[in-house]
């Protein structure tokens, strides 16, 4: 985890005082829960704003962002400490390439995450996209397949480009809830969660606006069209997830290599062998019996 030099969270000072206060509260709450390290994994399609979100969260330009090219070809972990609390954020390359989920990228990410513990997953998509398509589902599936279904218990849905004017004269809240519902549904389907599973927990949705022209409130916090200062809300959502009852995902060899299907059925091998042997035996007997009957029949005819 600490392979990189962990630097002081200088960007923290860049936040507006109001945000800083809120964050300090949240961090204190984390400490109460005895959480001194938080590792956040950021995943999503390319170009939805993962890196920008990381930058916003850290408050520094730690990851280069390019609107028209994917800069992050491999995962990058950014670590910052603040008063004994360590924040690790792992930015990852986009999971889609040429219309398909890039399992190569996924493999890279998994390799990078080896022996790390993921406290929170930020699944990033855009708020201002209207449709959810099959590709999203596949991405969810891929993530689920890689890190297990449980990872969704530690995840947040982050919707970027949240500063928008909804189409069709829709109310902003209605629009964003519709959009997040659509995505959550996809996640549910993609992760193959059963209804009641899903009802047990809800994936929090966080709206994000990373643009420099994001509106700000009187205390200079970036706010969403609905007036929320989104950075504190996001951090709050993160802390909530980090402190919920679910288990953090530890990425170990086993997880990376897959579900250990080699091991799974080993015990059954002798049993199956025995079964086979038994069946073969039965068939053999049947055949022999048949032959015998045949011979007898011939003998009868001879005589």
């Amino acid at each position: 985890m600490g392979s990189l030099l962990i630097r002081e969270w200088a960007g923290f000072q860049q936040f507006p005082p109001a945000t800083q206060n809120k964050l300090i509260d949240l961090l204190a709450k984390l400490k109460q829960e005895n959480v001194n390290t938080l590792t956040i994994l950021v995943m999503g399609k390319g170009g939805v704003g993962k890196s920008s979100t990381v930058n916003s969260l850290i408050g520094e330009r730690v990851v280069t962002v390019n609107s028209f090219q994917s800069e992050a070809l491999r995962p990058v972990m950014v670590s910052r400490t603040k008063g004994g609390f360590t924040l690790n954020i792992i930015d990852t390359p986009g999971l889609v390439e040429a219309g398909y989920v890039s399992y190569q990228a996924l493999q890279l990410i998994k390799g990078f995450l080896l022996n790390k513990t993921i406290d929170v997953l930020l699944y990033v998509d855009r708020l201002d996209a209207y449709r959810v398509d099959d590709l999203d589902k596949q991405i969810i599936k891929a993530i689920t397949g890689s890190f297990g279904r449980d990872i969704w218990h530690r995840s947040l849905l982050v919707l970027t480009h949240a500063q928008l004017c909804p189409p069709d004269e829709l109310n902003y809240d209605v629009y964003s809830s519709k959009r997040s519902e659509a995505l959550l549904k996809t996640i549910r389907i993609g992760a193959r969660m059963r209804k009641h599973d899903f009802q047990d927990f809800t994936i929090p949705v966080v709206l994000v606006e990373n643009s420099g022209r994001c509106n700000k409130n009187e205390s200079d916090e970036k706010i969403l069209p609905n007036g929320d200062a989104w950075i504190p809300s996001m951090v709050k959502a993160i802390t909530d997830v980090a402190t919920n009852k679910s288990r953090a995902i530890v990425v170990d060899k086993k997880l990376i290599d897959g579900s250990g299907s080699d091991e799974k059925g080993k015990l059954w091998i002798p049993a199956i062998l025995g079964l086979q042997w038994f069946i073969v035996k039965v068939i053999e007997q049947a055949i022999k019996k048949d032959i015998r009957r045949d011979v007898i029949a011939k003998g009868n005819r001879l005589y």
Binding site: G46, G47, A98, G99, H161
Partner: peptide
Amino acid sequence: DSQTRDLN
């Protein structure tokens, strides 16, 4: 505004 990349 969709920053399509990666030959999506």
